[in-house]
Computed example of a mutant assay.
Amino acid sequence: MSSGILYGLSAYVLWGLFPLFFKQLQAAAATEVVLHRMVWSLVFVLIVLAALRRFAWLADVRRNPALLGKFAVSAVLLAANWLTYIWAVNNGHVLDASLGYFILPLVNVALGFVFLHERPRKAQWVAFALAASGVLWMALQTGRMPWIALLLALSFGFYGLMRKVAVLGALEGMSLETMLLAPLALAALLWGNHTGQWPAHDSHTWLFFVLSGPVTAIPLLLFAAGARRVPLSTMGFLQYITPSILALMGVFLYGETFDGPRAVGFVLIWVALALYSAEGLWAGRRAAAAKATEPRAA
């Protein structure tokens, strides 16, 4: 249990610190950064697969075109999420990125209801309504929808939905997604270099391009290790570490404004998350207590 919490905590803290890494790549366009991230992520996961001698699952994938199709969709959603996030970080929208990942758990509730026929409890619906009110408030007061936050939440929410119905382990799933994305990314990089679309970069930028592979994969592997060792409710609480770090960095490190409509919208969403988390904890304890009092078979 304690090691699982440490794995999960490490993953969420690393995800929260991502702006420090991707700010080092401001010399490159967000599209180019994403293309490099695809290629170098594949290089890294292939090294890990080789070290673990874990390639047998590829035979099952080849015999299952439907699974391959689902992972093609999840790969596109993942690429869209990466592109939106990197553009947001490198264009002064770290707070919007934070908002997106605060909204994400409630987006997951809505997607589960629509696509998986899950039935949220009353308090979860109230939390969802509060969060929606926060988003609507910001849209009305600022004159624009928080598109970056919504794109991040929806792209990663649908990505999670696809990963739920297209089951593979964390390492195998990421490996398959990068196997589908990396050839196209490499072709785009080569074409861009040939036509001069991508500028020449110094050694500092190239170092961070290469490091984007392990930086992408390591938190995911830590998350998977943590999720296997601790209850889902515990991981649910830990997930708020990432957007909290992003919000603090956006305000105190990058000087983004946090007042007026944005502050009110954030407060509504934080209240929604507090209600959602408290209700989940209460429901989990009730279920555990009910199970403990069930008569056992002789």
Rank of each mutant, 00 (worst) to 15 (best):
N81M: 00
G196C: 10
V45P: 04
R296Y: 03
L248Y: 08
S233E: 07
G213F: 01
A283D: 08
S74V: 07
L78N: 03
L83D: 00
S175D: 01
A297K: 04
N108I: 07
L176C: 05
G112K: 08
L275Y: 06
T242E: 05
L281Y: 15
A149H: 05
G280T: 11
A297L: 10
V267F: 12
S175Y: 00
R37P: 02
E177F: 04
A132G: 08
T84G: 02
W198C: 03
A30N: 09
A297Q: 04
I241H: 11
K70L: 14
W15C: 02
I241D: 04
F102N: 06
A292E: 13
A132T: 10
M1Y: 11
E279W: 15
R229L: 15
L207D: 00
H117T: 08
R229V: 09
S41W: 02
A283G: 07
Q141D: 07
A79V: 04
P219N: 04
F115Y: 12
M162A: 15
W206T: 01
L35T: 09
L130T: 06
F44Q: 03
V89L: 00
A110G: 12
A289F: 08
L275N: 11
V267E: 02
L35F: 12
H93T: 03
L52A: 13
T195Q: 07
A50D: 05
E279V: 14
L184T: 01
W87R: 12
F223N: 02
L151R: 03
L184C: 06
F18N: 03
K122A: 15
M38R: 01
I245P: 00
A182G: 03
H36L: 09
A127T: 08
